[in-house]
Simulated scan of single mutants.
Amino acid sequence: MRDEPADISCDVVTAILSEHWEFQAAGVTYAPVGFGSHHWIASGPDCPRWFVTADRLDPRGNWLGSTAEQVRGAIEAAADVTVELADRGNEFVVAPLPDRTGRAAREALPGWMFVVLPYLQGWSTQDGAWDDLAEQAQVAGLLGRLHTATPPEALQRWDFAVPDRDALLAALADLDRPWSTGPYAEPTRLRLAGAIDHVNERLAHYDALVREVEASDEPWVVTHGEPHSANVLRTTDGLRLVDWATVQLAPRERDLAAVLGGTTDVLPAYQAEAGPVGPRPAATELFHVWWSLAEIASYVELFRNPHSESEDSEESWRTLTMYVPG
């Protein structure tokens, strides 16, 4: 997130690290990276560095759950699963550091879940597109390893629900009067009104794909959820997958949709680790459509509620216009 949360200062993060993780931070700076979570970089007196993540327990527009309690449970489960995967020797998994009680995630402030990770020196791309074909193949191989892993006990199961779908349907039924909840409310209404047939067709297409994939007996596997290029950290020790908040048991195409395609075929790299299995066209299409609908629903819900002009709002509007034709 580009906008620093008003109720969490760098001093507050320093105090949380000291009290709950027993890490003594000599300096903390806000890191305006990613989208959805807030991040800080903390430095210790003897050069250790930590990457601190905070998520608000607000279910609106959050893909992790429909209530605050479900969001909390999903964050805790994802953190525990990531730690277990890393402990099994999966070096590409960047896992949370436990707090002083052994928890990988905790509500260190009322209404806020915190996760602390090791800060790794490296770089990632600005968006999810693959520019390096060799890296794309390497990540396909890492996913092949992940998909053969025994599911950890804490792993939650993905479902076919589109987050905020009910809110999107309510918005589609409320296009005849102006929206006045903020600077992007009325532009969102007008954009949606012009694309109502497109959105309804996408919803119907998604439901048809769900019926087809649900009828399949293909086994589900451990999936990262968003293994695109921006979630790959290039380090001197190799490629590392970050942002495991969406790790779940799901069809393998949930991950494959992010790495297959383009100008090269990386399926052989995946199959070298996962065995002679491949993507099903309907399941791959399902996750492409799911992603677009989840983005549309999330940002429509954001702008139908009170909001203000900010860098995050501007970025949200830009993303919405990518998925809703003008």
Rank of each mutant, 00 (worst) to 15 (best):
M1P: 09
D3E: 15
D3G: 02
D3K: 06
D3F: 03
D7M: 11
I8K: 10
D11V: 06
V12G: 15
T14Q: 07
I16K: 08
Q24S: 15
A26I: 07
G27E: 09
Y30H: 12
F35I: 02
S37Y: 01
W40F: 08
P45Y: 08
P45R: 11
D46N: 13
C47D: 14
W50I: 00
A54Y: 04
R60L: 14
W63P: 04
T67F: 03
T67K: 11
E69K: 04
E69L: 13
E69I: 02
V71F: 13
G73M: 02
I75V: 15
E76R: 14
A78H: 04
T82D: 04
R88Q: 09
N90W: 03
V94I: 12
A95N: 07
D99Y: 05
T101S: 14
A105H: 14
A105G: 12
A105K: 13
E107G: 09
L109V: 07
P110N: 14
W112R: 01
V115N: 10
L120P: 09
Q121Y: 02
G128Q: 09
G128A: 03
A129R: 14
A129W: 12
W130Q: 10
Q136S: 05
Q138F: 01
V139T: 00
L143D: 02
R145M: 11
A154E: 11
Q156P: 01
D159I: 05
V162D: 08
P163D: 02
A167Y: 00
D174A: 15
D174V: 07
Y184L: 07
P187V: 06
T188C: 15
L190R: 15
R202H: 07
H205E: 10
A208R: 15
L209K: 08
S216T: 12
P219W: 06
W220R: 15
V222L: 11
G225W: 00
S229I: 00
N231R: 02
N231L: 05
V232L: 07
V232I: 11
R234K: 06
T235V: 02
D237H: 11
L241S: 14
D243L: 11
W244C: 01
W244S: 01
A250E: 05
R252W: 11
R252V: 04
R254M: 12
D255G: 08
A257S: 14
A257I: 10
A257M: 15
G262T: 08
G262N: 10
D265T: 06
Y270E: 07
Q271E: 07
P279G: 15
R280E: 07
P281Q: 13
A282S: 15
A283Q: 01
E285G: 14
V289G: 12
S292C: 03
E295P: 02
E295V: 14
E295I: 06
A297S: 13
E301C: 04
R304K: 13
N305I: 00
H307Q: 10
S308C: 10
E309Q: 11
S310A: 09
D312F: 11
D312N: 09
S313H: 08
E314Q: 12
M322A: 12
Y323G: 01
V324A: 08
P325D: 06
P325I: 13
